[in-house]
Structure formats: C-alpha cells, structure tokens
Design a binder for these strands. Sequence first.
DNA 1: TGGGCATATGCTCATTCAGAGTATAAGTCC
DNA 2: GGACTTATACTCTGAATGAGCATATGCCCA
Lengths: 348, 348
Amino acid sequence: MPAPPDSAAAAGRVRASQAGASRASIELSAVLISVDETTPRLLTVHHGREGLGLPSTHLDDRVDRTLQQGVRRLVGSETGLPVRYFEQLYTFGDRGRAPGGRELAVAYLALARYQPVHGPNEPSWLSCYELFPWEDWRSGRPALLDDVILPAIDEWLARSTLDELPTRRERAELTFGVGHALWDPVRVLDRYELAYELGIVGEAMAASSGDGGEGGAGRRARAAPVTGNPRAGDWRGIGMPLALDHRRIAAAALERLRGKLAYRPVVFEVLPETFTLSRLQQVVEALAGQVLHKQNFRRLVASANLVEPTGEWDQRTGGRPAELYRFRREVLRERPAPGLGLRRLGGP
Amino acid sequence: MPAPPDSAAAAGRVRASQAGASRASIELSAVLISVDETTPRLLTVHHGREGLGLPSTHLDDRVDRTLQQGVRRLVGSETGLPVRYFEQLYTFGDRGRAPGGRELAVAYLALARYQPVHGPNEPSWLSCYELFPWEDWRSGRPALLDDVILPAIDEWLARSTLDELPTRRERAELTFGVGHALWDPVRVLDRYELAYELGIVGEAMAASSGDGGEGGAGRRARAAPVTGNPRAGDWRGIGMPLALDHRRIAAAALERLRGKLAYRPVVFEVLPETFTLSRLQQVVEALAGQVLHKQNFRRLVASANLVEPTGEWDQRTGGRPAELYRFRREVLRERPAPGLGLRRLGGP
DNA sequence: TGGGCATATGCTCATTCAGAGTATAAGTCC
DNA sequence: GGACTTATACTCTGAATGAGCATATGCCCA
C-alpha cells in the first residue's frame, strides 16, 4: 500500500523550505505548584526590572540531554526543592512573546511538597488565586465576576459587529458560564485569554489593545506582549501580572492540573507521605477552587482504593482525631485511569 | 507578600546561564489523522532515503507568526487539505533525536475529513494500525501480543536484576495489561516506548539497544534514534517504522486523540456534515480500536445531545434506511466536558 | 464533671447512569 | 415471499452519584 521507495528529488522539497528557516533560542520555564495550608501556590523568582516571573533558563545544550533534565536543573538551581512530578505543558512560540527576536519557551508543570524556599533569585510561593482571583469559588461566587468581568464582557459584546456577536457570545458562555451555561473549573486558560482580550488584565492594559485573532478550533497560542512592570501590590487590572507571558503559562498549568485531578492521582505529589482524608480533601479543594461534599469525597476516595490506612492517628485536629492514610501507588496498575473521578468536580 | 521591587543583580543570574545556551533549529511536524471506511489513517510523505515520515518543515520565521500558522502552512503545502482541528501535541527535544546537532520538533495533532490527497512529496494515508498493529482490538485480541510482545516482555523480565524486576513488572502490567491488569486503550505511547525498549520495533533494532532511562514520573521524552530505511513491506520488528522518531510522535498523537474522544467532541471533525449513527460509531470504534455496544452507544449519543436529526435518510445501508444526523455545536457551551463519555471506552 | 463545640466517620435514600439483553421496524437480495 | 441486513425502541439490573442524617471521639471551659 505505501508507495514504492525513493523519490529523493521530490522529498528534497520537504526540507527545502529551510531557506527561510532560522535558529531560535530555547527557553525552559517551570510552573512549580504546591499547596500551602489552604492555598495553591506557584513558585516565582525575580526577573529584575520585569518583576516576578516563572523560573526560566535557556536550554544548555552542553549539559541537558533531555528537556526534562533541563527543567530539573533549573528548579534545582533556583530552589533546591525536590520535585515529585514533571510534565511537559506547552510550547509557546508566537512571534512577539518575548522582546528581541523569536524565542521558543517550552514550559513544564512540576509538583512539589510545600516547604519554605531559598535561592539566588529570591524565590517565593505566590498564591495562584492572586494571579487568578476569579478562579477561587470556595467561598462562593467571586465578586470580581459580577463587578468587573461580566460588565467587560457585556461591553465587548455590545461593541461587536453582527458577524462577531454569535461567536463572541458563545465564547463568553463557554468560558465564563455566562447565561445559563455552567462554570467549568478546568477552563482556566480560556478565561485568562478572554480576560486578556477584554483588556482587563494588567498585561493587556500596558500593551496594545484588541487583536482579532484567528478564531479557529483548537487551543490558541497567542502571546501576551511584554508586560509593564508589575511591582508588589501595585498593578492595574484584575489579578497580579507576571513578567512576559508568564501568567498565561501559569494559567495553562493550572488548567492542566485541574484537568488531571479527575483521572490521575497527582494530588498525592503535593502531600506528605501520610495525611488525613480531610487534608486530602482540603488540598483537592484548594486546587479545584471548589468545595466538595465531605462524605461523598471520602466514599469516593475509599472506593477508588487510592489510599490505605496507616493505623496512626492525627490528634491535632481540634476535634475527633483523624486516621492517617498513605497513597497506594499500586492503583496505578490496577485501573486504567485512577483519580478522584470528579466528573464535573461536583460540589455540595 | 511578594518581595520589594528590584533585585536586578540577583535576577541577572536567571538569564546568566545563557553562557551555555545555544540556538536550536525548530522543526514543525504534523500528525494529520482521518478515518477511512473503517481504518484510522495518518498522512505520510516521502522523506527521500529515510523513507516515509510525517509532514515536517522548519519553522519559517519570516512567514509564520504563530506555530500553528506554521503547521497550517505545512499541511497546506504538502496536501492542500482543509484541516478542521489543530492541537499542539508535544515538543521533542532530546539530544540525538535527529542527526546533526540538536533539533527541537514541535508536533501538532490535526484532524481532517478523509479524501484522496495529492502533493509534491507523494502524500498518502497510512493506516494507524500498520504502525501499531497491537492497538486494534476490534476483531479480538491481536495475535501479535501473545506471539511476539508478551514473550519479549517475559524475556525482558527474566534478564532484569532483582532491583529492576518490580518496576519492570509494574510497567508491563500498566502498559500492556499483563497479568490481571486491564488494557487501557489510551496508553498508546507507553506501549510503543516499551516495545522500543524491548527491541522489537524496527527503529530500535536498527539502532543501539537498551538504554536504562531515567524512570522518573511524568512523560518520558526519550528519542528514538535515526531509523534504518523503512521501505514498503520490508521492515523488521512489529509494525511499520517511520523516518526518524516519527512513529513515536504518531503514537503520542493517537494516544491524545483516544484520550480526547471521551470528553471532547473531536470525532465530528473527521466526519462529513451529516452522518448516520452507525457511521459515527464506526469511526469512534476505528479510532478507539475497540468495538462498542451498539444500543448503548446510541443512547449515549442521544442523551449527550451531541447530535440532532436532519430529517433525511440514508438509503444505502443495505438494510433499513438510517436517519442522518448532524453535530450540534451548541453542546460545547451547554456542558463542561461534552464527549462520548466512554469512561473506559467500554466495549460489549 | 459535664455541656458545648468541633471534627471525623458511618450509614441511608433517591436518582441517575452504565452494561447487557430482547423485541420490532424497514429496507435489500434472490 | 422468505431470508437476510441494518436501524431503532424498550426493558432490566446493578453500580455510581448527589444529598442528607446520625453517631463517635476528641477538645475547651464553666
């Protein structure tokens, strides 16, 4: 069925378009996520004038045999923290995402247990919900939605042409659950991107406005231009900006992580060896940005055989002591997609 | 909470590791998938001496504003086919994945309706199951498993040290469902990677053998070295090799696509505007490599509100005429994760 | 010492959903 | 007209889900 061999002449053309090819500089970025008492946090470092941003480095061709090794080296040199999970996230390569020529950024999602950090560039744990305040629904619907975002969406719809209107309306419904549509906790990146287009996040306000965009299917990889100069507590727009397009990358990471919660046991990578079921639920709720029904959550965890009791008890609960559990790594080979099958990450 | 501004001196170090930085050449690759009558197919082109491979090109910095535009241009110039879905797949950047210096490959998954192709490099639709014969369970358990793969696994386990044994056994159970573990249709890449390590796929046989590997969590991005010279029907090992590490990339694409079936309505991008429910099922089965319970499938599709009847009927069924349906794009905004909730892609 | 409070844990109940089977309708082929 | 093929409708059962109530076991403080 495949065609006969050799057609070197024709095949030459595949690589012939190298005429316009150029070598790009490769940047590695890490979104290292953990969970504090009740807050999901990501690691930031200082990027000089550009303010806070993700740990980033250029791929060192002499040292790093694989991309993941490069990220490992990066996080090691910035924090020394032991990273318990790595996953390639996305490659950002739009023109204009970084100043001075094209730069490709390969971003990784990483998970670690929470602990204080020290390092050469003042690493610190930033609350994910300082970046995306509209993503935390644990104490009810965020006020920001009705105060800022929905009005901005209305305005955006109002100033659209008749052609654009249905698409825009659909997009607003999809991402922010406008109208009778549902809020999908996973669509973090979609929401950030729309907020960016609405011009209500700091990066977009500092830079040029609307863009139009391609509108095709699939994940858009449009870049946020270089941001102004986010300093502590002193920024415009909703949520705290990061250097370059790093807030976008963080949004992609949170989206990926929330999506994974349902079908892969990744939560355990931010938890200590043993933990109570309440702590487990607390961490899941922190990451999902949603409260969960307590009894059902325990039933779920139990029936999924994700954990096993250690026989030890935590007395510091303030109430009845709670049994300590540990993650059963064996489930990985027992079921195709182990995880807290939170189908719609259903709340109470 | 964030530290006070400015620490330019320290921050300099973040980017100071540029000392060893190098600019890499960026290759774009597309895994364009469609479904023939009953076979999932991906588009291959001729790569000269290296045989069949994926459509690939170097990123043209002058033309392509975004990576996705580059892929669009690539598929356009190779085939002219209208692509209905794009999604970034993975970035492969291990040293040694391509001859002659480091090359980063950014791979995209693309979907199109099936139609004959023409182009400068003899594009053709290759059956996915010619690449991965062990992935097609529609007519029962593939013989290849018991004839070749399981014996190779046994041998691999037998020659492992006592340290390696539990890890290896677990991995075998996880990927190939050895023992009483279940076969997860989604783990296409894991299976290809293990088969590669077992030395039973052509690429691994032509090149050096075992490697050891890192063994950490997360997706491994190890590269398959340059392959021998896959010619039509004339290769060693199981399944047909592709040029370079392109079969690995194809495995990643099939894995992603199978995973997406359950929670995103991507099937419809390979179907024509209208279709019968049987055709829909046939396409899903082709991609999933599994047969599905017919009555339940229809109930699923109906209850998910994914399609709506057109009122027209297809008379060419050979039996009772079937009603034609069309995809309801609106579901995208009605439910968080629309798709054929094939939880375990459950069969009959 | 015992009540108030907080937390953990156990159990019930109604509803929905997934898997599997049976029955019927409406065409084609010979 | 009968055999065969395909489409479609309906039933049944056990499991999973969402929500609630009840009980156990600690602490704090009067």
